[in-house]
C-alpha cells in the first residue's frame, strides 16, 4: 500500500489495478483538495480478514478488473468501510440483464430486452422484440467488446452456435436487446450522487459508439430530460458514481447501459468539468457521513 498526503486528512483508499489517465486525474484532484490517497493494488493485496490493516476512511473502486474490484469491495464492506461504488451497485451494473431488470422495476425508460439460453428461445425472443435486427451482448463485458448486430436468422444461428461451443458458462447466457437506429451518436452522462454533472455526445459512423471503439466525444448540454433520466437510473441501481449510456429514440431518451467504474479522462476537456474533482468530493462526503 502506498500513501500520498498528510495523515490528518480524510484518506481515500483507491483500489486499483492498471493506473489509467482517469486514476491520475483523481490523484491530482485529491492533491489539490488536500485529500489523502492510499493506493491499493488489488492484484497484490492479501485479503486476509485476520491480518489486514485498514487505514483509510473510504474505499474508491477503480480496478480495471471488475472481478478483482468486486472481491475487494466486498472485503472492505465486511469491515464497515464505505465503498464507492458499493458491492450491491457493482453487482447490478456489471451485468446488463440485472441492470435492465432494476431499471424496469423502477419504470426507468430503457430498451426492450430478453435473456435466453438456446437458439430456439432466441428465435422466439427476436420475434417478441419486434424482429431483426437485434443486438446480442454478453451480460458481462465492457468497452464495446463482443457486441453483435444480428440482421437475420443466419447470423443469429452462427452467433449462438459460437457462444455455445466457445463460450464460458457466462457467455452462454444470451442477452438480446432491441436495435435502435441512432442519429450517429449516443449520449453519456456522468452522474455523481444522483446528479448528472455533465454529459458528452459520442459520435461515430459505426453503430457501436464506445470511445474505446473510436467514438469521438463532444460536449452535450445536460437538459432537464437527461438530468431526470440520469437521476432516476442512478436511484434504480443504488446510486454512487455512475456513467449512463443514453440513446435518443423515437420515444424519447432511454438508458442503454450503466457503467459503475466510469472512464472519463477524455470527457473533462470537452465538458469543462472536473469529473475527477467531483469524484473526490463525493468520496469525502461519504467518508464524513460514516
Amino acid at each position: 500500500m502506498r500513501k500520498i498526503g498528510d495523515s490528518n486528512m480524510i484518506t481515500i483508499g483507491l483500489l486499483h489495478s492498471t493506473i489509467r489517465g482517469d486514476e491520475k486525474l483523481i490523484l491530482e484532484a485529491a492533491k489539490k483538495r488536500k485529500v489523502g490517497i492510499k493506493l491499493i493494488d488489488v492484484r497484490t493485496e492479501i485479503f486476509n480478514p485476520l491480518t489486514y490493516k485498514i487505514n483509510f476512511d473510504v474505499a474508491l473502486v477503480r480496478s480495471v478488473s471488475i472481478v478483482k474490484g468486486t472481491y475487494a469491495a466486498n472485503f472492505f464492506e465486511t469491515f464497515g468501510v464505505s465503498v464507492v461504488n458499493s458491492s450491491s451497485v457493482t453487482h447490478i451494473c456489471e451485468d446488463k440483464f440485472y441492470t435492465s431488470l432494476y431499471l424496469l422495476q423502477k419504470k426507468v425508460p430503457t430498451l426492450k430486452f430478453a435473456l435466453v439460453f438456446n437458439l430456439e428461445q432466441a428465435v422466439q425472443a427476436v420475434s417478441e422484440l419486434g424482429g431483426f435486427p437485434v443486438v446480442i451482448k454478453p451480460p458481462l463485458g465492457s468497452w464495446g467488446r463482443l457486441l453483435a448486430k444480428v440482421n437475420d436468422m443466419d447470423a443469429l444461428e452462427a452467433i449462438i452456435e459460437h457462444k455455445d461451443v466457445l463460450g464460458s458458462p457466462q457467455q452462454k447466457a444470451i442477452y438480446i436487446q432491441e436495435y435502435i437506429k441512432k442519429p450517429g451518436r449516443d449520449i453519456r452522462s456522468f452522474v455523481v450522487g444522483g446528479k448528472a454533472i455533465c454529459a458528452i455526445y459520442r459520435d461515430s459512423p459505426h453503430w457501436i459508439t464506445n470511445t474505446a471503439r473510436g467514438g469521438k466525444a463532444s460536449n452535450c448540454p445536460v437538459t432537464k430530460e437527461i438530468f431526470r433520466l440520469s437521476k432516476a437510473a442512478s436511484e434504480a441501481v443504488g446510486g454512487g458514481i455512475l456513467a449512463m449510456d443514453i440513446f435518443e429514440t423515437d420515444e424519447g431518451l432511454k438508458i442503454n447501459e450503466i457503467n459503475h467504474t466510469m472512464e472519463f479522462k477524455n470527457s473533462e476537456i470537452p465538458t469543462g468539468t472536473s469529473i475527477s474533482g467531483a469524484i473526490v468530493d463525493y468520496c469525502v462526503k461519504v467518508a464524513k457521513k460514516t
Binding site: T18, I66, G141, S142, W143, E263
Partner: peptide, 11 residues
C-alpha cells in the same frame, strides 16, 4: 510488457 486485456476488464 503490459498485461493483455482480460475478459473482465472495463468500466
Amino acid at each position: 510488457k503490459a498485461p493483455v486485456v482480460e475478459e473482465d476488464w472495463g468500466q
